[in-house]
């Protein structure tokens, strides 16, 4: 099936099998390996990306369901070599140990801050309930999210992710350097 989807500001058109999961499309077809597969059963949240501005677990969305949509992955957050404020806050607060859950944690944190720009500790923990850290490094993750909230006042969210320049359509080979 032919799908057209904008990922991190670039429009792609690809033939995919209906059964292909969005996370596999992102990783295997587009090379967006920053988005990781953790539990594969919709529990851990490691594969969280934004689909039309809202966080989703990309292991529980079919690539064909993303047809016509805009996807933002962890790889689409930095601008001109500058980390997104939530990425920077995770760095500053040492909010990672092994780092596997980090892409999902950051994507969900941005979503959380879009809904609630100044969450208290309980709101952060509740907002991240769909993301698991097997290192149990939650203290610094919560700290980082609250730090990011302060850095980003009055708010973060989908508008932070907007790519201002018009979308440039490129072919897959130009992006990834050939068939994967």
């Amino acid at each position: 099936m032919r799908i057209t989807v904008t990922v991190d500001g670039i429009e792609y058109a690809d033939d995919v099998e209906p059964r292909q999961l969005l996370v596999h499309y992102l990783r295997d077809k587009l090379g967006k390996v920053g988005t990781v597969v953790g539990c594969d059963t919709s529990n851990c949240g490691s594969c969280t990306v934004h689909l039309d501005g809202h966080s989703v677990k990309s292991c529980s969305v079919l690539a064909v369901q993303a047809h016509g949509s805009e996807v933002t992955t962890i790889e689409g957050l930095a601008r001109d070599g500058k980390l997104h404020p939530v990425q920077q806050a995770f760095h500053d607060n040492h909010a990672l140990q092994c780092g596997f859950c980090t892409p999902g944690m950051i994507m969900q944190s941005i979503d959380l801050l879009a809904d609630n720009p100044d969450p208290d500790e309980a709101a952060v923990r509740h907002g991240l309930e769909g993301n698991l850290c097997r290192c149990t490094g939650y203290q610094n993750i919560v700290k980082a999210v609250r730090d990011a909230a302060h850095q980003m006042r009055p708010g973060a969210g989908p508008e932070v992710e907007r790519v201002d320049e018009p979308h440039v359509s490129r072919t897959k080979s130009q992006i990834s350097g050939g068939e994967r």
Binding site: K57, S60, D111
Partner: peptide, 9 residues
């Protein structure tokens, strides 16, 4: 119900 990501879909 579930978590925020699941509630979005």
């Amino acid at each position: 119900v579930a978590d925020p990501q699941v509630r979005h879909r």
